[in-house]
Each structure stands twice: as structure tokens, then as C-alpha cells.
Deep mutational scan, measured.
Amino acid sequence: CSVCSEPIMPEPGRDETVRVVALDKNFHMKCYKCEDCGKPLSIEADDNGCFPLDGHVLCRKCHTARA
């Protein structure tokens, strides 16, 4: 995971895991958050999703503030 540096592995008792890929980086679902404010990001293409800027994973509000 690009945030916590832990491997993305299935939880005990499970055969599969879910990971998020954004900007060629891999994330646990729980680690997929705005780099500035820490708001959890949605994997859907909506207002709560990722608004990347200069290689950073940001929420819409933080993207607008940086732009």
C-alpha cells in the first residue's frame, strides 16, 4: 500500500482482497484518503472520489484549494 507500506493481502479466512489503484499507486480501501485533509475517498466517479493533482490523491475541496 502506498500509504501504510503494508502488503495488500486477503483478511484471515478470505481468499480475495480489494485494492484501489489510482495514479499507478496501490491502496487498501481504508488507506484511500485525501493526502491533505484525510477524508476517505470513494472509488466511484463522483464528488467524493479522487481529484488528482500533480501526482497527489486529493478530495475535491483540497484539489480546488491547491489549484
Rank of each mutant, 00 (worst) to 15 (best):
C1A: 02
C1D: 03
C1V: 00
C1M: 00
C1W: 00
S2N: 09
S2K: 04
V3A: 06
V3M: 09
C4I: 00
C4E: 01
C4S: 01
C4V: 00
S5P: 00
S5Q: 09
S5T: 02
S5E: 06
S5I: 03
E6I: 05
E6C: 10
E6Q: 10
E6R: 14
P7E: 14
P7L: 08
I8N: 04
M9S: 08
M9E: 06
P10E: 15
P10W: 10
P10V: 15
P10S: 10
P10N: 13
E11R: 06
E11K: 07
E11A: 08
P12S: 15
P12R: 10
G13F: 05
G13D: 09
G13V: 08
R14V: 09
R14E: 11
D15M: 04
D15Y: 06
D15P: 10
D15S: 10
E16G: 09
E16S: 07
T17D: 09
T17S: 15
T17P: 10
T17E: 15
V18Y: 10
R19K: 15
R19Y: 10
V20R: 04
V20E: 11
V21N: 07
V21S: 13
A22Y: 03
A22P: 04
A22R: 12
L23M: 08
L23R: 08
L23K: 13
L23A: 10
D24Y: 03
D24T: 04
D24S: 13
D24W: 00
D24N: 13
K25D: 02
K25R: 06
K25N: 03
K25A: 08
K25W: 01
N26V: 11
N26G: 04
N26Q: 10
F27A: 04
F27L: 10
H28Q: 00
H28G: 00
H28E: 01
H28I: 00
M29I: 14
M29Q: 14
M29E: 12
K30I: 02
K30L: 06
K30F: 03
C31Y: 00
C31D: 04
C31R: 01
Y32G: 01
Y32K: 03
Y32T: 02
K33P: 01
K33G: 05
K33L: 05
K33M: 10
C34S: 01
E35L: 04
E35R: 06
E35S: 06
E35W: 05
D36L: 05
C37W: 00
C37T: 02
C37E: 02
C37K: 02
G38F: 08
G38W: 07
G38V: 09
G38Y: 13
K39V: 10
K39N: 10
K39F: 04
K39P: 00
K39I: 09
K39A: 12
P40I: 03
P40E: 12
P40N: 11
P40S: 14
P40V: 08
P40F: 09
L41W: 02
L41E: 02
L41S: 01
L41R: 03
S42K: 10
S42A: 10
I43V: 12
I43C: 14
E44T: 06
E44R: 07
E44A: 07
A45Q: 14
A45M: 10
D47K: 09
D47C: 10
N48P: 08
N48Q: 12
N48Y: 09
G49C: 06
G49Q: 14
G49H: 09
G49M: 07
G49W: 03
C50G: 12
C50H: 09
C50K: 04
C50D: 05
F51E: 15
F51V: 09
F51W: 12
F51S: 10
P52K: 09
P52G: 11
P52R: 08
P52C: 08
P52E: 11
L53E: 06
L53W: 12
L53T: 08
L53Q: 05
L53G: 05
D54P: 00
G55I: 03
G55N: 07
G55S: 08
G55W: 02
V57I: 10
V57S: 09
V57Y: 10
L58D: 02
L58N: 07
L58V: 07
L58P: 02
C59W: 01
C59P: 01
C59V: 00
C59H: 02
R60F: 14
R60P: 04
R60C: 13
K61C: 11
K61Q: 10
C62S: 01
C62R: 00
C62T: 01
C62V: 01
C62M: 00
C62G: 01
T64Q: 12
T64L: 10
A65G: 14
A65C: 12
R66T: 13
R66S: 13
R66C: 10
A67Y: 02
A67V: 06
A67H: 13
A67C: 04
